[in-house]
Amino acid sequence: MNTPVTSSSQSAPVQPPSRPVQKPDDANMDRRSFIKWLPLGWAAFAAVVAGYGTLVLRYLFPNVLFEPKQSFLAGTIDDYTAGEVSERFKERYGVWVVRDSEKIYALSTVCTHLGCTPNWLASEAKFKCPCHGSGFYKTGINFEGPAPRPLERFKIFLADDGEIVVDKTQKFQQEKGEWIDPDSYILA
């Protein structure tokens, strides 16, 4: 067993080299230096995979959304009487327009608990959500049930011709102190 191994190892340098003899400073990479580069290789691989994953994630969010218009005309101030909760725009736009003694504001019809649509109970002067029983005052402040915060208000302003415009792209949250923003109401 031993003889052929030794003879071959001895005869190896004698044999005419079939390929160029490797030197340490050769451009070809030997095993040791390959291992040295391995972490970098894996890092590059992981980076590409992560980048690809990010692209797929981004793919889930389209650039253009074909959803109904986010702003609408809501008549003039005189269309609303003080103390009234108007349900005219609930079905189409998901907005209650409320006029109290001083101002007009637009309340979102989306319950802050889990997104059901509450009902306006005029006799009890409150919004009551059928899903989990959250209750809101006319102002939108939550007072009963599991809702964690008040209903949101939308941007509302008067156009140049005196018509009320409700813009749903901008919302105002009471718990962030945004209801004092003049964009969130119209003085009546």
Binding site: K90, E91, G94, T117, P118, N119, C129, P130, C131
Partner: peptide, 9 residues
Amino acid sequence: NPSVSPNPS
């Protein structure tokens, strides 16, 4: 109908 939540949902 997105504007009417059944009671209970």
